[in-house]
Amino acid sequence: MSVLAFLAFAGLSLNLAMAQEVFRVGKPYAGSVGYAFLELGVEQGIFARHGLQVEVTTFAGGAKMAQAMSAGLLEAGMESGLFMSSTAKGASFKAVAAAMTGTEYAAIVKADSRIRSIADLKGTTWAAPFVASASGWLPKKLALQQGWDQDSVKIQTGAPGGSAIALLKTGQIDALAIDAALAQTLAEAGNVRILTAFGEYVPDFFQYMIFATDKVQRERPEQLKAFLAAFFETIEFARTHKAETVDSLARTTGLPAGNIEKTYATTIAKMSETGQFPEAALEATAEAFVVLDVLKEKPDMAALFTDAYLPSR
């Protein structure tokens, strides 16, 4: 390469680097597979091709991430649809895409637990980081679908990921709702047993949503559109590149690749291609707010999300 050609190439590379906009995204946990698609997009250069330098930060739960978003430390974040309750209470962010409709969570119990069937879950205690979380809602919804009173299962809050698992192992709670791949890993270690998958009982649930701050919607709408376009391009990549996807998700979550592979097909099937918000899932989310006593009445769900930044299909 000639000196002139090298300088031209170096200048082009510098200009491309300078053109990339830093876009900060949060996720509440490291061990959930759905959040790890963010890192997959970064590793594959998909966000970069859309002019974004995406920086992913993991927080100790959704509440910490919400604080960071409200403080202007993030442009966007991923959480379950129940996170929309924060918007209903006045938080300065809104749902901008539904990343997964349905759930890839499983119910686990201690390996030597007396609980052997769904019926045995009546009267049990579960743990969750906070009430309006997937771990808090899924057991309640399961109870309602069984025709039980919602109080037939108790939720002990204030227990994120690792703390909740410790509570289960020591017998301080009876059951726990967690990511299916993590459930597989714990079951293989012999400490817990998978009782059931929640997917067939709770089909209308926003397992993963993308939220954007009011500020980025107002001041950087084109970058937000580029981020969402790149995210769904990442999901499309994952559908057609299983080996690369499994390897990336395993490294990001710290879970065995074999267990990621076991849940790959059902996870990919539930990941959205468009980011749209199904009406049935919106109604189920509104119901959850009231059942969990997060809100006194169902909110106007249309005020809690927008599809204005989704890519055209």
Score class of each variant (00 low, 15 high):
L121K: 02
G123D: 10
T125W: 08
T125M: 12
W126P: 06
A127H: 03
A128F: 01
P129Y: 08
F130Q: 10
F130V: 09
F130E: 07
W137K: 08
W137G: 04
K141M: 10
L142H: 08
Q145P: 09
Q145L: 13
G147Y: 09
Q150T: 14
D151T: 14
D151V: 06
K154A: 12
K154S: 14
T157W: 09
G158E: 00
A159H: 13
P160L: 01
G162H: 12
G162R: 14
S163M: 12
A164L: 06
A164S: 10
A164R: 03
T170R: 13
T170G: 09
Q172A: 12
I178N: 02
D179R: 06
A181C: 10
A183N: 07
Q184Y: 14
Q184R: 15
L186F: 03
A187M: 12
A187W: 05
A187E: 11
E188I: 10
N191A: 14
V192F: 08
R193S: 07
R193K: 14
R193A: 09
I194V: 14
L195W: 05
L195K: 03
T196V: 13
F198D: 00
P203I: 03
F206C: 03
Q207N: 15
M209Y: 11
M209D: 12
F211C: 00
A212Y: 03
D214I: 07
Q217L: 12
E219P: 05
L224Q: 01
L224E: 06
K225E: 12
A229H: 04
A230H: 01
F231T: 03
E233H: 08
E233M: 06
E236T: 13
F237V: 01
A238R: 00
E244R: 07
E244C: 06
T245H: 08
L249D: 02
L249W: 05
